[in-house]
Each structure stands twice: as structure tokens, then as C-alpha cells.
């Protein structure tokens, strides 16, 4: 392990200045992702700035929505969130075991990095950037994306649920505060632009805001994985419906495990709009959700799995009072 400095400031401004001033400095909160990445050599740092003591804890629930501070760990069990934003609570519960949830933070969750085993291997030869875009990897990787290139898939359950609800990431940096919608927060890395988000070096997530909406209250998160707990998603669906009788007024569908970013299934949302939530409409929406997928032979099953997961999620919501 590379030697590094460790600092634990108590003011946000101090934390921002330290990281901004040092190219390989990094923020650390719960460390459930970063420590592993440092141990494996996937990431290197010269200075860890521990933000645990920053005043970034708190959960506000108002008529306008939820404001979740970056270090707030109590969201999954909060009754207001469970009632008004079930998709978020369910995603958090599906995201990790209780031990990890008690360490991890929402801000860190959104920055956990792409899921691809090739990162770990690539660090052996300093190839991380090439591999993260799929250039030197095996095209037959069965967990790879179906809507983007490379091998990396977006794996944050929380992030997929936030993308469905049009949540906004609040970040603070040298240039002041910025507000980035979750759907525009991530980008597919490329060799010349290896960063996976639009966050600048030295910017710190301070909060996440989830706007209230009628759909949010009727929402659900479905995670398909290959063991019952302590496993990343293979695919996932965050779904939210605003119903009038059995007619869909509006809907939100986001998919995990299908691309390098949380994938908003807009075509499926358009298919649902204004329709009665019948079996046929659900099937059509599910089909629309996977239209345009470009799987490899090894991960072609994901297309069918996503289609079926969308059906299950919508049926669940249709039956949910």
C-alpha cells in the first residue's frame, strides 16, 4: 500500500481546500468502497481527507421532497421515506448488508465506481483507463453492459432509485455550490476522459435532494442478483407510477446493471403514458425498456432478464394500493 497522509477536518471549507490543493488527495467517509480499491491497487492516493466529522448529517422531509445530507445513514429505516419514497428505502436495503450500511454513506455510495473486475487486474500494468472502456478486455464478459461499451456497469442500487425520481446531487467545491441531476451526474468513461462523473476534483457531495412527486409514493425497487444478499445487482429496476384509477398519468423507470450509468428507460415511460396498466401495456413497456440494447453473446440473457424485471416491477406497482 502506498504511504498516504490522513487528515480529519471539522469544517467543510477546510476539507475542500485540502483536496483541491493536492492532485491525488481523496475524500473518505465510510470507506466501504474506497478502502477496498486502495487495498487492491485500483486507486492510489497521497492524502485521505476523512469527512466523518463534517456537519453533513440529517434527513429533512418536507412537502417539496427529501433532503438527504451526504453522511446521513438513517434513511432506509425512516418511516417518511418508506411511505413516500419506497423505491429509495428498498434500494438502500437491497444495496448492502446492515454492517456495511452502518458504515457507508449516501454520498460515497454514488461514487463507488463502475463494477468491472477488469479494473483490479488492469492495475497490475497501469492499464486502468483502457480497460475501463473495454479496449483490452474480454468482450464476452457476462455481467457487462447492454446499452454501453466496455465492461463496466453501474452498480449503485441507491443511484438507480435516485435516477428514477429525478434526484439532484448537491456538490460543493472551490467554485461554490453546484446542483447536478443524478441522470446527468454520470458519464461513460472514455480513454481521454476516464472520470466516471461530472464532479470535478475537489468537489464534495454535501446532499442529495429528491423532489416529491405523486409517482414517488407508488414506487418499488427490484434487484436481481445471484445470491440472496451481499451481492451486486445483475440487473435492477427502479419503477414509480402515478395512477389515476388504473390509468398511468406518469411513470419513472430506471435500470441498473445495463450501462455505465444509471439508465433511464424513457421509451418505456412514453409507452406507459396515458395508458391503462393492462398486461399488454406492461409487456409493451418492458419491450420498449430494452429496445436498442446491444448485448454480447455472453450477456444477451440480460435483455430478457431486464424485460421480465420491468414486468414484475410494474405488476407489483399495479397491485400496490
Amino acid at each position: 500500500m502506498q504511504p498516504f497522509r490522513y487528515t480529519r477536518p471539522i469544517q467543510v471549507q477546510d476539507a475542500l481546500e485540502i483536496v483541491a490543493g493536492e492532485e491525488d488527495a481523496a475524500f473518505i467517509a465510510g470507506g466501504t468502497a474506497l478502502v477496498n480499491q486502495l487495498r487492491s491497487g485500483e486507486r492510489r492516493t497521497t492524502h485521505l481527507v476523512d469527512i466523518t466529522d463534517l456537519p453533513l448529517v440529517g434527513l429533512e422531509v418536507t412537502r417539496q421532497g427529501v433532503r438527504l445530507s451526504a453522511l446521513e445513514r438513517g434513511t432506509a429505516g425512516d418511516e417518511r421515506v418508506r411511505a413516500g419514497y419506497p423505491v429509495v428505502a428498498e434500494a438502500l436495503l437491497a444495496g448492502a448488508s446492515p454492517q456495511i450500511r452502518n458504515m457507508a454513506t449516501p454520498g460515497g455510495n454514488l461514487l463507488q465506481g463502475l463494477r468491472t473486475p477488469f479494473y483490479r487486474e488492469a492495475v497490475l500494468e497501469g492499464q486502468r483507463e483502457q480497460v475501463s472502456t473495454g479496449e483490452t478486455s474480454d468482450s464476452g464478459y457476462r455481467y457487462g453492459p447492454i446499452f454501453s461499451t466496455g465492461t463496466g456497469v453501474y452498480g449503485s442500487d441507491l443511484g438507480v432509485s435516485l435516477a428514477a425520481l429525478d434526484a439532484v446531487v448537491v456538490a460543493e467545491g472551490a467554485g461554490g455550490e453546484r446542483r447536478l441531476p443524478v441522470t446527468e451526474f454520470y458519464r461513460e468513461p472514455s480513454p481521454d476522459k476516464p472520470r466516471e462523473t461530472f464532479l470535478e476534483h475537489g468537489e464534495l457531495i454535501t446532499a442529495i435532494e429528491i423532489p416529491a412527486s405523486p409517482a414517488a409514493a407508488r414506487s418499488t425497487y427490484l434487484k436481481v442478483r445471484e445470491r440472496a444478499s451481499y451481492a451486486y445487482l445483475v440487473v435492477s429496476v427502479a419503477a414509480a407510477l402515478e395512477l389515476e384509477g388504473d390509468t398511468v398519468r406518469s411513470s419513472r423507470l430506471a435500470l441498473g446493471g445495463v450501462a455505465a450509468v444509471p439508465w433511464r428507460a424513457e421509451a418505456a415511460e412514453r409507452t406507459l403514458a396515458g395508458q391503462r396498466l393492462s398486461r399488454d401495456v406492461i409487456e409493451a413497456a418492458a419491450q420498449a425498456a430494452v429496445s436498442g440494447a446491444r448485448p454480447s453473446p455472453q450477456n444477451a440473457y440480460k435483455v430478457e432478464l431486464v424485460r421480465r424485471a420491468v414486468i414484475r416491477a410494474l405488476e407489483t406497482l399495479g397491485g400496490r394500493a
Partner: peptide, 14 residues
């Protein structure tokens, strides 16, 4: 990995 022969799930998470 078919191409390189490297292990792609040699940890207890994967």
C-alpha cells in the same frame, strides 16, 4: 478472462 487468462472473480465479493 478468455483473452488474458486472468482471474476475474478472485475475491469473496465476486
Amino acid at each position: 478472462d478468455h483473452t488474458s487468462g486472468r482471474l476475474i472473480n478472485a475475491n469473496l465479493f465476486d
